[in-house]
């Protein structure tokens, strides 16, 4: 039986759930938005009502001061939307509060992954494989060259650079929501108990994570550091601050960056990174393809990233697939 799944329609500015007149991660204001997670390219303000996990809504409130119309939906709770559509938020393992959204209508199941990863992350619950008819997946690292190493190996690299240079500091560029807190949590898990210093732009999000019960250990702001306190310390800053005036105050920093892009040498060099840390909050190639196999949908739709290679893989593996031309999703810093 051929099905056209016409009740869900990808448009350049978001995925339209037609019978419920809802939009998933829309990039323009709509009446009713279903949001997968708090990153700026997926979560925007100005909607009439916003359905998301309580964690994501807290992040959105902090970042965009959007509170009106917030509808919290805890993980696993199935809610009824207009037009006979049911929606469930399922952990995606990407950042705090991140979710896949399962939509059910007329006996068909569609899962929108949002951004996701399959590796364990101390700051959020793990990705859950959810059987469905259509899997709408991201493909940020959708090239076979992307095989993320174990996070323990990258954390060890960071700690050994720190130990080898007691007079210097290690300045790690990390995305302010998610990557920074995961990096800190992984450092704690590896036994690093020293104060970790933060760029001012990191502080509020770290506090929010702590409010949600994630222990990040002793944190202080670089602006409060006394003379000599930063030597031998780890400093976490947004990637944009790495080579900016802000970093001039630091004692001979070793410039590091935590990102999946760091796997490619020229990408690291372009960012003037000395210590590339391949730490990603996205699925790598093997995990993307493995996810398609495990979910085993009738169709795979690819939202953003390197969709050509994923499409090719689906074709080679006789899986029906299509690329959606969505605008506004960014992947530069992650």
């Amino acid at each position: 039986m051929a099905r056209d799944f016409s009740w869900i329609r990808p448009e350049p500015w978001g995925i339209h759930v037609v019978p419920a007149d809802c939009w998933i991660d829309p990039s323009r204001p709509v009446d009713r938005a279903l949001v997968t997670h708090g990153h700026a390219d997926h979560a925007r303000g100005g909607h009439g009502s916003t359905f998301a996990t309580p964690e994501t809504l807290a992040i959105m409130k902090l970042r965009y001061a959007t509170e009106a119309g917030a509808v919290p939906v805890p993980y696993g709770e199935r809610i009824a939307l207009p037009g006979g559509v049911a929606a469930t938020w399922i952990p995606a393992g990407h950042v705090l509060g991140s979710a896949q959204i399962l939509l059910e209508h007329a006996g068909e199941r569609i899962v929108v992954t949002g951004d996701f990863k399959r590796r364990p992350d101390p700051t959020c619950p793990p990705f859950e494989v959810t059987p469905c008819d259509v899997l709408i997946t991201e493909a940020t690292f959708g090239l076979p060259v992307f095989r993320h190493p174990p996070v323990e190996q990258e954390i060890a690299k960071l700690l050994s650079a720190l130990a080898a240079n007691p007079e210097r500091c290690v300045l790690v560029g990390a995305y302010a929501l998610g990557k920074a807190q995961r990096l800190i949590a992984e450092l704690r898990r590896a036994g690093h108990r020293d104060t970790i210093w933060l760029h001012g732009a990191m502080e509020r999000m770290c506090r929010l994570y702590e409010d949600w019960g994630i222990d990040l250990g002793p944190l202080r702001l670089v602006s409060e550091a006394g003379k000599g306190e930063l030597a031998g310390a780890i400093i976490v800053a947004p990637p944009s601050a790495l080579n900016d005036r802000w970093s001039r105050r630091l004692p001979d920093p070793i410039t590091a960056m935590a990102s999946g892009w760091m796997q490619v040498r020229q990408r690291a060099r372009q960012r003037m990174v000395e210590l590339p840390l391949v730490i990603s909050d996205h699925a790598d190639w093997n995990e993307l393809t493995q996810t398609v196999v495990e979910v085993n949908p009738a169709e795979t739709w690819i939202t953003h990233g390197r969709e050509e290679a994923m499409l090719r893989w689906c074709q080679l593996n006789q899986r029906k697939a299509r690329a959606l031309a969505l605008v506004g999703y960014e992947d530069e810093d992650d």
Binding site: L143, V145, R306, E308, A309
Partner: peptide
Amino acid sequence: DPVLWTLSREYVGDSAE
């Protein structure tokens, strides 16, 4: 697959890498 090789090579910019 040759298509996957070409896409990868274009992205990385260096055959050896």
